[in-house]
Structure formats: structure tokens, C-alpha cells
Design a binder for these strands. Sequence first.
DNA 1: TCCTCATTGTGCGATATATGAACAAATGTC
DNA 2: GACATTTGTTCATATATCGCACAATGAGGA
Lengths: 252, 252
Amino acid sequence: MHETDFVSGFARGLKVIEAFGETRQRLSIAEASKLTELDRATVRRSLLTLAELGYADYDGKFFTLTPKILRLGHAYLAATPLPALLQPHLDLLSERAGQSASASVLDGTEIVYIARASQRRVMSINLTPGSRLPAYCASMGRVLLAALPENETRAILARSELKQNTPNTKIDPEELVAEFRRVRAEGYAIIDQELEIGLCSIAVPIENDRGQTVAAINIGAPAALVPAAEMKERYLPLLKETQAALRPLLRR
Amino acid sequence: MHETDFVSGFARGLKVIEAFGETRQRLSIAEASKLTELDRATVRRSLLTLAELGYADYDGKFFTLTPKILRLGHAYLAATPLPALLQPHLDLLSERAGQSASASVLDGTEIVYIARASQRRVMSINLTPGSRLPAYCASMGRVLLAALPENETRAILARSELKQNTPNTKIDPEELVAEFRRVRAEGYAIIDQELEIGLCSIAVPIENDRGQTVAAINIGAPAALVPAAEMKERYLPLLKETQAALRPLLRR
DNA sequence: TCCTCATTGTGCGATATATGAACAAATGTC
DNA sequence: GACATTTGTTCATATATCGCACAATGAGGA
């Protein structure tokens, strides 16, 4: 790859868009400049470009993103067959379990929801396709991390901000790596209120016909209704059925 | 605004990302060049930039978007208070109605879902935040178009691809404009299987404390269970309640 | 195997952009 | 009200990108 095969103006602009996610909806030029660590003049040009194209509004002082920006992310969900393929299976799974079912993939240290069939909302967070959670303390994250070679897993843990969300949250890397080994051996991960008090979840990997893990699915339930100890017997068979139904559909 | 206040490399790159949404997941350089009507060399540089930043994968022949691209669209959903504000109200609405409830805003000729509380899936399409539907034949679209000055509404209709999705679909601009007037006067829109056979929906506008329409919410139901004639009496009171509950929360 | 067609990679001149500093305007502070 | 600080804008110029023309590669077919 040549050194000229990189459009830095494009890269800078993408950085500016992402700056909006980290804080509030409105950004001044100076704020965006600080967040992106780009020159004010450069940020200004990127923002004015976004406004010109209709991806942002500008009131002379603050820039705000418009819904048009959703086209960019949605290009992935619309273009990738995986979410559409998983959705009906999640619907069925969710209905049979009477709980929310989700699917996600790994992106760096985070899991990204790509499909979801939600029952009554139990979490304080609102999860939709595109939502992100730290991988180390989510059941799907455990499954996805367990599928990687151990050196990669360790590298991701090293980059993760291991935060004690609840008294249950495991944040010791060695303990986590040991748990990943168990997940790999037994084929499922259970989270007992490590992300949020009151929430348990159980996840299994989704593999293609070559056995490569391409996603994870889970069922989440309120700990008050379904203690962690019961998650396995109640939901693992359903998850395994869904997993088996999907495998032949996923060719590479 | 100066003529130099525009980063064309950035604009071109965004166009390349959107090219993925229109077709399948994989694009070669030549395909992307055709879709975007940009020079091959330019598209290639943009794609390589995306790959370098982790927004795309490249196998030497085809480029595919990675889930990282969802960060861009999600920046909007995470940064805008409206979706988070609406969600609990949609949950309640959906539960009381026993049907799916959604919220959307207008983007050009399309509505964009920004929040959704879904019951059993009734539509063939899978709707999630970020999903788009043509405005002219969706109940929320009717409400949002009705809120605009008539010349703007007509301009949008002129740009819309008015397609006869079902025998019920209204595609005559004059008929649509007349319907928008009725919607404006009566405060709600009902769609009777104009988008998809078997699906009815009813929508009302969501206004801020100054009376400006900032979004629309709707309830969708299977026509087999709820005939269009019954939509109004069954769901309009619930929608109006939600509308009233939200108005004081929406300051500008 | 050789040819053809389609696609991808590369070098170069013309053109457009990024940079940082200087200036202007707005904002906050005393 | 004057000063200090922050923010937005403009400008000249060094630098990087764009689009073209050409070279290289690869896939199919005869």
C-alpha cells in the first residue's frame, strides 16, 4: 500500500463524527477540536462539510448531527446478512424463553448489538442494534473473547477499562482468562449481575459451517425472577437449539 | 462560507460508505466506483482509508464494512436526547396497547426510526432504530409531512418515488396533499395496508412546548386482528395520552 | 496456451487541502 | 468598563490529494 493510499481528510472527518458520541449532542468548533485533537481550522472544515451535506445542522455556534448520519451505520446493518438472518431466530428464542434475546459481534474491547428481540425492558440501559457494552463483563462478550487465541484475548483485556460495575464484576485478568477457558470448554457463559445489579444473562457462540465463531447470542433475565443458578437449565437448551439451527445457514 | 470550507475527500468518503447500503455487503473497487460515480483511484483511496482505520475489511478483492462503522450512526442515537426520552413512553404505550410502538423523524423523503418497543413481529421487514421507510405511505410519515408548510411537502413528494406497494397505496400527489390537510386538522394519520398487506398503523405528532413537531409516534397492528376502522377508537386515546405526557418534557 | 475483457495498481502534473499564525469577535472576570 | 481569555475566521504557503493515462494482473473462453 502506497503512502498516498490514505485520505487523511476523510479519516479526520470520521474522527469528528465520533466526537459527538462521546459527549452531548451539540459541539462547538473548539469543543470538537479538543475532543479530536485536531486543529480548529481543520475541524471547522469537516463540520461545515457535514452541514453542507445535511449530516449536521449548524446554528452559527453549535453543530448537531442530523438523522441522516444514521445512514452510515445502517449501511452495515442493511448490507450484512447476519443481522437479518439472526432476527427471526431471536424472535422465536425470545418468545419461547419469555425473555429478551440478543445477538452481537466483537469490535475491539466492546460487543456491538446487531439484532435483538426484546420482551419487557429490564435493564436501565436501552439496547438496540448498534449499542455497545464492554466485552469483559457481558455474557456475549465472554463467549466472543473465549473464541479468540489467548494472546489476542489478553491483548484486548489489556486495552479494556476493567471497571467494578457491581460487587460481582470480575476485573482480575487472570480470573477472566481462566473463565474464558471454561467458556471455551463448556460452550456457554453466564453473567450473574456483573454488569448491572438485578440482571443475569447466558450466552452461546454462533458458529459458521467451518466452526468459526461469527457472533454470540444471549438471553437476559431479571435476577429476581431467574437466579443465576437456574439460567443454565432453563435457557441453555433453547440457546443450543438456536445455535444448531443457525450453523448450517452460515456459510463462508 | 468560503469555497475552501469544504473537504471533498471527506464528502467522497461518506458517499463510499453509503454505497454499501444500497447493495450487498461486499464491494469491489470497480463496483464502488460505479455506485458512487467517483473515480476508481479516489474510491480505492477511500476504501483503503476505511480499512486502515478498521471501519472495513479488505481481502485483496472485496471490501466489507465492519461493525465499527456502527459507531458513526450510533453517535447520533447516543448524543440525541430524544430517543432516550421517548423510549420509556413507547415501552408503556406498547404494553398498554399490546402492539408495537415506534418513534421516528423525517429525513428527506424517508422516515427514520429512532426508538421502538416491539411486541411480536408482524411485519416482513425488520425495523430497528436507524431503519427507514418511505414517508408518503407510512403513518408517521404522513404526520411528519403534514407538519411542514405545504410547498415543502409538495417538494418532498416530487422527490419521492411514489410506488404502489399494495392495491391500497395512495400515490396521487393531490390525494396525498388532501390527506395531509386532514391529518393536520384532525391530528392523526391512519394507514390501512398501504405499505404492506396485513398491516395497519396509526400515528400522532410529538410536539415540543412551542408546538413544533419534532417527531412522530405510532402503533402498528395486524389488520387481521385490528381492522383499520377500529384503530382510531382503540389506540388514538393512548397515543394522545403519550403525546400529552411528552409535550412538557420537550423544551427547545 | 494464447487471447480478450474486465479489473486493479501506479506515477505524475494540476489542483485542492491542511497548517499555524494573525486577526476579529465574543465571552467571561475583576 | 477595561482586561484577559476563549472562540471563530481568514490567509499564505507547504503539502497532500485528484483524476488521468498507462501498466499490471487475473479470469474466461477458444
